[in-house]
Design a protein around this nucleic acid. Sequence first.
DNA 1: ATATACACGGATCCCCTATTTCC
DNA 2: GGAAATAGGGGATCCGTGTA
Length: 815
Amino acid sequence: MRTKFAPINYDYFDYQGRNYAILIGRDDAGKRLCVIDSCDVYLWAVLEENLNKKNIDNLIKKISKIKLNVKGRNTKVEKVELHKKRFLDKDVKALKIFATNYKDLHDIASCLKLDGITKRRGHDLGYITHYIIEKKIEPLKWYEIEGEFLNNSLEFGGIDMAYETTTCLKLNKSKEIKSEKFNPKVLAYDIETDSLKIGEGEILMVSLVGENFQKVISWKKTKNPQKYVEFVEDEAELLEKFIEYVKEFSPDILTGYFSDGFDLPYLKARADKHKIRLNLGLDNSQPKFSRGTSITGKIKGIVHVDILKFIRTVYAQYMQSETLKLNDVAREFLGDTKKEFDAHNLKGEINWKDFYEYNLHDSVLTLALFEKFWPDMLEFVKTIKEPLFSLSRAGLSKYVDSYILHNLENYNEIPERRPGYDETNERKIQRKVEGAFVFEPKPGLYNNIAIFDFTSMHTSIIISMNISSSTLLEKPQKSATNIEVGDKKYYYSKEKGFFPKLVQGLFEQRKKFKTEYKKNPNIFTKARSNAFKVLSASIHGYIGFFGARYYSREASASILAFVRKFNKETIDKIQKEGFEVIFGDTDSVGFLINKKNKPEIKDFLKKLNSELPGIMELELEGFFKRGLWVTKRSGKTGAKKKYAIIDEKENMKIRGFETVRRDWCKLAREIQNRILRKILIEGNEKKSLEYVKKIIKKLKDREIPKEDLIIRTQLKKELSEYIAQGPHVVAAKKMKAQEIPIAQGGLVEYFIAETKEKKKLVRDGVMLPHEKANYDIEYYLKHQILPAIENIFQVFDINITELVEGKKQMTLKDF
DNA sequence: ATATACACGGATCCCCTATTTCC
DNA sequence: GGAAATAGGGGATCCGTGTA
């Protein structure tokens, strides 16, 4: 039979010792299909350079005879071929060694420690990645396929019968076709429990939300519930009903928010308790949880997506919100928030109807978030060619790694291996490479500033200077690009390496899709542009990441040395042109334009650009009306990575100041923000002083609401791991004692209260938000407000601390 | 385990010295 | 008068969170 098909979920199974890929997806009528296919499995053995034909033939003969029995499985070398390949930019002869079962490639590789073989590669990709590379059947793309029905057949041990509700096909042929976007069927879910510890409480209700589908199932009954609420007798029945509805809806994707870490394991634990099979899988199997630091829940045939993980990988660093809680993320991306309901305080009277609504709305938000990020996930899946499941769990290094692996054959390259345990540790303990250059600013308030910055600086250096692990030359060459790193000098080949070429491809596509987005802005062009932007920006981080296949400390150090060199040279050139440089950090430079007009500055920029090599480019970030730089808290030197600027339209950009830091209380942040704004708009500090006086009076009169005094700090490690007992550690301990849930990664909230004892330590005054106590006026004045504004007034030669404290008598009236 | 380095700044830790307290 | 306790100064370190 012939049909259209888009694969969503990839899995594999063994039958008679061989591997088969099992692809679950949809046809163009929306019907679910299960496609079974196989591919050659092999690894590469790179040969010594000077082997003659006879040596090679002997080697092939020897290898062809390898037979193994691993865990009761017979596996053998089935075929050996000699190929001309490239490995790390060198021409090599390599043997392609085919074997029976992918899982045995490691054992085959151990048999290949033979004379004449220098490297064994390509057996650590994972079967699914290997399959996609081999067969080019990529996730979420459309194919026209031909195959044979498996109708209760015994082929493959009757696997089609396990997938009883699904049509199964054995694939014969496939061809990619251009077609509409793929629209998956998505179901979001969320549970509410009376204890947050996995499996320790009871599941009170569960909500399910999909297209035209809203359901809350609960055994906590009340009169006149909402239409979407369905009652069951007890928790066991709730679980059964949940399974039933998931099966009935039959989603491609089941999504939750933090569902890997909470909802799915909870459901499984409670099902186990009631001896119910949580048979959500299309083959009626139960979810499987991977071990490791963070749990991952996998359901056969359905892609379980914990949307939180994708957001954390791709968006967290660009987000405004200070936590990744559903409420904050929904507010930022959807403009919607959770329903008001204290689900953690279930003592006393519970308004169940509110609770149902709260539960439903969490799923509504989760689905909305999924839909919001679906274009992004789709584009990433297509770009890195890995299935949605692995994409949604991977970090940026995995994204880059996958992109490289799936593009290697364009360069006839044999893949490099993942570093082993020892190698990883060795890389970790290496001294850090020197990073970027940061110019020390001269504190002050300045007018008319221009800022230049390099476009994708690290990436364009990799491309322009041909930097990678394999283009690094062992010996100096006269014509080669070279760069001094410390007391060493590294040389890079003139001949373009596959890695820089691959990065160039990425970079050019990034430019192309950015243009496409600007011409035709919609969510899909935006997502595509963003996917390439994120990937392109992650390359340098990848090279310096200890787990990377193409890790190179030398390359990373060289890139950073070039970053410093170009930044310093640019600063030099700008100064030589007669401008005063105010700040510079990594890839940007800010300077005073003085009497020069904008076209003159732009001409100057053109001149600078004409002197840059390769694809490197300096661009105008903008003209700014005014900017403020302050001193460090200690000493008189200018503080780096801390400034506030304002453009002609009075858009303010604040970097590094306490205003943008979540571990300062709202009061301090707001005062600082208002002061910065007043100063930047008016060009002086007069009105700000008045404002500060007003606030300090309010503070002293205890008129500041407690909410503005709450300090939020993340608990980065386990409580027991802390050496220093800082205020947030003490607060977390208090929470534990009061049975308020707090775990590693959670946000701790507290305020500082007056204490009777002659206090020395801040932590002695730590109080949780709900605790009743008088806030410590002195602490908030000396440790929050003054530190936040002191350096700003310092610029105008005003000692605000002295004004407030030192001359109390004189200023009593003022304050 | 899951991209990098640079930087700020609060709070505690820890050592030292001077001063106070105790017997 | 001498030993022990205490205060406080200051650098080192821990820690979290920014910028790029």
